[in-house]
Amino acid sequence: MTDVNQRDIGKAMINAAALVLVLSYALPYVYLLMTSLKPAADVQQIPPHFFPESISFENFREVLVNSTLPHAFANSLIVAVLTTILSLILALPAAYVATQYRRKLTVVFLLFALVTRMVPAVSLGVPLFQLLKSLGLLDTVPGLVLAHTSTAVPLALLLLAAFFEGIPRDLEEAARMDGCTRFQAFRKIILPVMKSGIAITALFSFIASWNEFLYALLLTSENSKTAPIVIAEYNSVFGLAWGPMTAAAVVYSLPVIAITLALQKQIIGGLTFGAVKG
């Protein structure tokens, strides 16, 4: 009997520990939410209160109506969507042949993509600035899309390669026996089979672009500033305007969190799939 009791106690302790861990990780973000809902005057009260004493949308009105943030959100959205599309168009065929037609050339190519993942953005920022300037694309949406795609493509390649790895070679061969060219087999059979892998990769590319900061900081100035840049400017310009800043942070992060929670299973699947399979 004591044996059973000890086991139960052990289980309860593990459950409690897991709960504490999870709560302590959720708490900071909950505090951000709470703060954004406080009246601006209460945000910086001393000592701080975790929960708002009265709920107010003052901070949200401030950032959504009286600022350049909505425009920046629009920029972020356009850039992220275009980056996602472009990086998929480039990465899908390449990742496919890199895994299904393994040879020296494709191995070298994947290694190059892997190396590209390691390159610090700060190293490429200024040369990219020079390149975009010579192309006349500085401070434009297409310019930033190109820059973001240069980081999204290697990411997409490695993720997609892990997904393509799981597709048997037979499938393409069967399609070719059934009357397809190699490219038709890829388009009509392989891509539909890869649907969920493509969706996850698209999401990761989207988030990579949505979250990106340094290239946006270097390559945009007036017209094509994205949300993180504008939020960061809040940070320095109104050093003490914590209220609007928390509201902006919530607005900026909620869509991504919502998508993540909605597609959590697939995302974590994709994340760990790529990582664990190495």
Binding site: P168, D170, L171, E173, A174, A175, R176, M177, D178, G179, C180, T181, I189, P192, V193, K195
Partner: peptide, 20 residues
């Protein structure tokens, strides 16, 4: 000649059915 133009059909060991 490409497989598609050889007028032959093949049954694979794994069957290679299109899962979707």
């Amino acid at each position: 000649v490409d497989p598609k133009d050889r007028d032959i059909a093949m049954v694979f060991q794994s069957y290679a059915l299109y899962p979707h």
